[in-house]
Design a protein around this nucleic acid. Sequence first.
DNA 1: CCCTTTATTAAGTATTCACTTAATCTTTGG
DNA 2: CCAAAGATTAAGTGAATACTTAATAAAGGG
Lengths: 222, 222
Amino acid sequence: MEAGRRRRGRSTKDSADLKVEILRAATAEFSTKGFDGARMDAIARRAGVNINLVYHYFGNKDALFVAVMEAAYLTIRTYHNDINLRALDPEAAMSELVRSTFRLFSDNLHIIGLLSSENMHEACHIRQSEQIRNLYNPLLDFIGETLARGVAEGTFRSGVDPVELFITISAQSYFHLSNRHTLGFILHRDLTSAESLAARQRHVVEVILSFLKHQARNSSDA
Amino acid sequence: MEAGRRRRGRSTKDSADLKVEILRAATAEFSTKGFDGARMDAIARRAGVNINLVYHYFGNKDALFVAVMEAAYLTIRTYHNDINLRALDPEAAMSELVRSTFRLFSDNLHIIGLLSSENMHEACHIRQSEQIRNLYNPLLDFIGETLARGVAEGTFRSGVDPVELFITISAQSYFHLSNRHTLGFILHRDLTSAESLAARQRHVVEVILSFLKHQARNSSDA
DNA sequence: CCCTTTATTAAGTATTCACTTAATCTTTGG
DNA sequence: CCAAAGATTAAGTGAATACTTAATAAAGGG
């Protein structure tokens, strides 16, 4: 397999591959064990490299985790796909945003483990990344503009806070997966089966769209 | 403070207090550090006892965590307060259930840390507790019955799955807190301020109630 | 008032783990 | 074709950590 046993001193092209492989291994380890449960030597073993290569490329455990988080956030923002939704009418744009957010987490369970661990650490790693800090600004702009368009054409209610809506969409797509093990146990139901996921996606879209389209009697009365 | 330095061989009454104190310390440590980040000697120090007393009472780290989780789940079910909501009309009952679930997590942030860690461990600890396994059955019954009453009197849409609704209510009350650190960073907003929490609670109630009261064109077309 | 039981502690121990030191092997630019 | 730089590894090291052994102190029943 793979040209036999690894040998010392390989080309920069090969070593770039190794770096990617280490990152993949680290992502798997961190997302399933959490930062504290993850072991550096387990990452090296997963990647099939000597443990010191991990230190050579990434410095230390914290820096490696930061690198993993940066890649994860790029995946997240790619999935949102908001750039391609600007052309749609408000209702279609919103339901597509919900669907793509839902897909984001179902397709990338590892992101949930990473976020969960990072929140246990009070976001101390991503705080070091200026790249991540402003990653969501375009998405919030998109949500705000789409809401405004919907209000203007009379399909959406007014007074909805874009940030609040974003949290609601994410919550509905995230919680049933982040808590799938405890929920599965107390609800006596597997929440990760294909049917269960499909049913939940339908439910989530319906919840959010019926909220947006509902003309509230007393919404946003500060 | 507390009759000076602790002495050996105290009465069973005092020692029951110590056991409670250890449990409180363990709850604080586990919820802020996670199972893997938590340190047994930190728990002993927090409780002000010798570390071996922790082992004497609880056996080992895993068993201690199980004890903490059992206490947490009792708190959870107490907050839901579903027993006292059965008397209300469907709409009031549902909005109260949302509010009490919301309060549950805002008032008990430690529960979020515990659940997060337990899910990272695939619920391996609570699985050992038969006490927890069926704790939610009455709540799901309550939700199912309240939905049926609402449909019968014409205020609620039909075809809503009680389990799905429960997850939605919990998700909306949980996610903004479980992910408060990463969200706070990327959204440039403090989600734990009193005003922010009040605004979110209003939003959450409105989202769920407008979903339930919306007469969907094509809901639950399985 | 003794003796069993329970509470509490002191002082280890074995292991795990993040990280380091220092060497060797390969490639590649000059 | 040599030398510097980079890739890769072997073999530690010191601190942290879950847990144990074994001793002591007091309570409380008979």
